[in-house]
């Protein structure tokens, strides 16, 4: 049973962009697993609300690698809000179509990226209260100092 991949899909599989990992990423997610036969890891670096860098690692078929490659190419430089809206239909269209039994690869890639963004947002929301706590602590210390002086 031959699978008809488009030229663009094959090119993205043979020379994938953005492969590798990022040390100390701002967001990270893993989707799928080896037993199912596909796994993707996404790494994000975010600056001023924009995706500064994005990389992926793949254990999967040709379309798994190709969809992750094209997706990372597309969302690089996007705002987080815009990247969240990027959907699998756009990935498929960008590749000029995917064989029907391989469409799930694009869905998985988009989900994986969204999880990495979620992870980034979680980390961000945790950072903010931490800052407040420090402020409170310092103010308490300052208050103690003041009371000691008295």
């Amino acid at each position: 049973m031959a699978l008809n991949y488009t030229k663009k899909t094959l090119n993205n599989f043979l020379k994938p962009k953005n492969v590798g990992s990022i040390k100390k990423p701002d967001g990270y997610a893993q989707i799928g697993n080896m037993v199912c036969g596909d796994q993707l890891d996404f790494f994000l670096k975010v600056e001023k609300g924009k995706i500064k860098d994005v990389k992926f690692l793949s254990f999967g078929c040709a379309s798994n690698i190709a969809t992750a490659s094209i997706l990372t190419e597309k969302v690089k430089g996007m705002t987080i809000a815009a990247a969240k809206k990027y959907n699998w239909q756009q990935v498929v269209a960008e590749l000029g179509g995917l064989p029907q039994q391989k469409v799930h690869c694009s869905v998985m890639a988009v989900q994986g990226l969204k999880r990495a963004i979620n992870d980034y947002e979680k980390r961000e929301s945790k950072k903010k209260p931490a800052v407040k706590k420090i402020k409170k602590a310092t103010s308490k210390k300052a208050a103690k100092k003041i009371t000691k002086k008295r």
């Binding site: 991949y5 599989f13 078929c61 040709a62 690698i65």
Partner: peptide, 9 residues
């Protein structure tokens, strides 16, 4: 490494 990726390559 996944089998189909080897096949296509």
């Amino acid at each position: 490494v996944e089998g189909e990726a080897i096949l296509i390559d």
